[in-house]
Structure formats: structure tokens, C-alpha cells
């Protein structure tokens, strides 16, 4: 009996060290402040009343290149920002790691790729990445106008770097945004994000 009691205490202790969710669908999305490639500061609360998409990015990752070389990501950015969505691309690669960019390099990339996010947030220290527990590039989050996270996961249902897979893919982000804007529940609110690991500092 005594043994069992101490075991129960241990289990309770183990439960207490499990940290809170980083970014859980249905809960309030974590507030952040981050600086974009033009030196402008953005806060999540500053976009209250608008849907916000966060897109984790690494320009050297084959899974990201699948989306950008095919023009698919740019198309999504244009389509949804035209419908009032705030689209924030986030680069959390640490200096010296794949995908790390200076502000000038990122602006040149955006222009060269004809990308159209609202802004690109540069997060070389990984604070925003860790706040949302972004695992991969791409890893997509959607926050509704009242600040609740409504999607956390992959960009689509084709977990491969093969560019041929873009055409037949079901895009989870587009579907979730369309459903949310129509006042419907998001049918696929989570999925396994797939891609390259986010290149955080060691």
C-alpha cells in the first residue's frame, strides 16, 4: 500500500512538469511581437478582427521549394490576402543554418519569387518558432479574427517534396480558411506538419 502511495505521488509530479500547450487548436493563440524584413514590428493583437495565417519558411528546403517553385504558395498568399487575410511568413532559421536570411536577402527573394505575404517576420533567435512550437517548413497556423487558433498542421495532404504532388493535393489551409469564412467549423483542424525540421539555433 505504502509503495503504491509513493508511486501515485510520482505520477502526479510527472504530470505537473508537462508544460502547457504551445499552440492548441480551440485555444487562444499566443501573443507575439516580431520584426519583419522591412524593420516593421508586428503583434498578433494588432491584427485583432482579421484572420491571420502563419507560414514557417526556409527557402532551401525541398518541401518549401515544392510550394514556391510551382507558384502554389504565392497563389495562396495572393488569393487570401485579397480576401482580407493577414499572411505572415516566418523565417526561424538561425544564422549559419539553411534558410537564414538577412532582411535584404529576404526582400530580394520575395521580389524574385513574386511572393505576396503581408510581411515576412525574421525570427533568427527562434522565439516565435518556439512559442508556436513550429516543427517544420512549411508548418501552417491559422488564427481567427477573435484570436483563437483554428488550424495547426501541414499545408496539404501530400507529404512529399515531389513537385508533381501539388496539382492533386487537398490544401488544408485553403479549406480551413474557406470553411471559417463561411461560418462553418474547420473540418480538418490539425494534421501532421511535414517538411524539413525548422533550423533553430543549437
Amino acid at each position: 500500500m505504502k509503495k503504491l502511495g509513493s508511486w501515485a505521488a510520482l505520477v502526479v509530479a510527472a504530470a505537473l512538469v508537462v508544460p502547457a500547450w504551445a499552440a492548441r487548436v480551440g485555444e487562444k493563440a499566443p501573443e507575439f511581437t516580431a520584426t519583419d524584413s522591412n524593420g516593421v514590428k508586428h503583434t498578433l493583437s494588432g491584427y485583432a478582427g482579421k484572420p491571420v495565417v502563419l507560414e514557417w519558411h526556409n527557402n532551401g528546403c525541398p518541401f518549401v521549394r515544392k510550394q514556391y517553385d510551382s507558384g502554389n504558395m504565392q497563389k495562396l498568399q495572393k488569393e487570401w490576402t485579397a480576401r482580407g487575410v493577414v499572411w505572415l511568413t516566418v523565417v526561424s532559421s538561425a544564422p549559419g543554418k539553411q534558410g537564414y536570411v538577412t532582411p535584404d536577402e529576404e526582400n530580394a527573394y520575395v521580389q524574385r519569387m513574386n511572393a505576396a505575404p503581408t510581411a515576412v517576420l525574421l525570427d533568427p533567435g527562434g522565439q516565435l518558432g518556439h512559442l508556436y512550437d513550429a516543427k517544420t517548413s512549411p508548418h501552417m497556423f491559422i488564427i481567427n479574427p477573435s484570436g483563437t487558433l483554428i488550424y495547426n498542421g501541414a499545408i496539404d495532404d501530400q507529404p512529399t517534396p515531389d513537385p508533381a504532388s501539388v496539382a492533386g493535393a487537398t490544401n488544408y489551409v485553403s479549406r480551413a480558411l474557406a470553411e471559417a469564412m463561411a461560418g462553418k467549423p474547420v473540418s480538418v483542424p490539425t494534421s501532421r506538419p511535414y517538411g524539413c525540421s525548422v533550423k533553430y539555433a543549437d
Binding site: W7, V11, W21, R24, D133, N152, T190, P193
Partner: peptide, 14 residues
């Protein structure tokens, strides 16, 4: 545990 082991596995955000 008596006669075994228990692992605590944090749930995925997904």
C-alpha cells in the same frame, strides 16, 4: 511500478 513500468507521454499539439 510493481511488476512493470509507466511512461508519461505528452500529447501532440496536433
Amino acid at each position: 511500478l510493481p511488476g512493470g513500468l509507466r511512461l508519461t507521454l505528452r500529447k501532440s499539439d496536433q
